[in-house]
């Protein structure tokens, strides 16, 4: 098996998941609507003072992303489990990591689109002026989403097959995401301001380190986790 074949399998699984999502849009629409609803509720709970809202905007966007994103991860494995498709998938020869990579890619696109919607709504609702440093801001968001999706997909591969998966996944995932949450919110806040202290760079490096470390760790661990 060459790396090309592995990549083909990765792509096939991601495409399959995305096709399923596109055919039945209910899943994405539901999760994205929930994210926007959470954002609105946070706005109501923290408002109506405009300055306070602007301060809280970054945190609100990230929390809405976390709380609704967690629903996407269990879904991606649940679809396989309900149709009994995971076992035949495991029977194919070759390494198992393309399964993880495929799920990861599918979830990345799913959550990435959701975050874009949440951000746009957040900018409008919380009265954010988009700064000149928006490419860096997008990079922070992308790195944060990668961290969220890597750990989310990995833990969902277990929690989706346990009892009480709805409770278990956030319980496992959220404490692990503390560095991502801190880095992403602090860096975003710095970039929305003038970033006078040049904090954003250090946080971006932390995010890159976090993503790389856990990407490697989860790929190594997935083989053990999926066959059990």
């Amino acid at each position: 098996m060459s790396l090309r074949d592995d990549w083909r399998r990765t792509r096939a699984i991601a495409m399959k998941d995305l096709t399923t999502e596109i055919r039945a849009k209910a899943g994405f629409n539901g999760v994205a609507s929930l994210a926007v609803t959470i954002l609105i509720l946070l706005g109501l709970a923290l408002g109506p003072d405009a300055a306070a809202l602007r301060n809280a905007a970054v945190g609100a966007v990230w929390l809405a992303t976390l709380f609704s994103g967690v629903l996407a991860f269990n879904r991606s494995f649940q679809v396989e489990l309900e149709s009994g498709a995971l076992e035949p998938l495991l029977l194919y020869p070759g390494p198992r990591w393309p399964i993880f990579a495929g799920k990861l890619l599918g979830n990345l696109i799913f959550v990435g689109l959701m975050v874009l919607i949440v951000m746009l709504v957040g900018i409008v609702l919380f009265g954010i002026t988009v700064p000149d440093t928006w490419p860096e801001l997008l990079a922070v968001v992308a790195l944060g989403v990668v961290g969220l999706v890597v750990l989310g997909t990995f833990y969902a591969s277990m929690s989706s097959r346990s009892r009480a998966r709805e409770v278990l996944l956030p319980l496992l995932l959220f404490p692990m995401l503390v560095p991502v949450l801190l880095a992403a919110t602090t860096a975003s806040k710095a970039l929305l301001g003038a970033d006078l202290m040049h904090e954003a760079g250090a946080w971006i490096r932390l995010l890159i380190g976090f993503d790389t470390l856990f990407l490697v760790a989860t790929f190594l661990a997935f083989e053990h986790v999926i066959e059990a």
Partner: peptide, 29 residues
């Protein structure tokens, strides 16, 4: 979370492998 995972998984091999992964990755963090 680690202890909850153990409580919610019945199969002993699954429980062992999964909690080992969660324990190791949690400690790295």
């Amino acid at each position: 979370g680690y202890l909850a995972l153990r409580a919610f998984v019945d199969d002993s091999v699954q429980r062992a492998k999964w909690s080992a992964a969660v324990g190791a990755i949690g400690a790295i963090n």
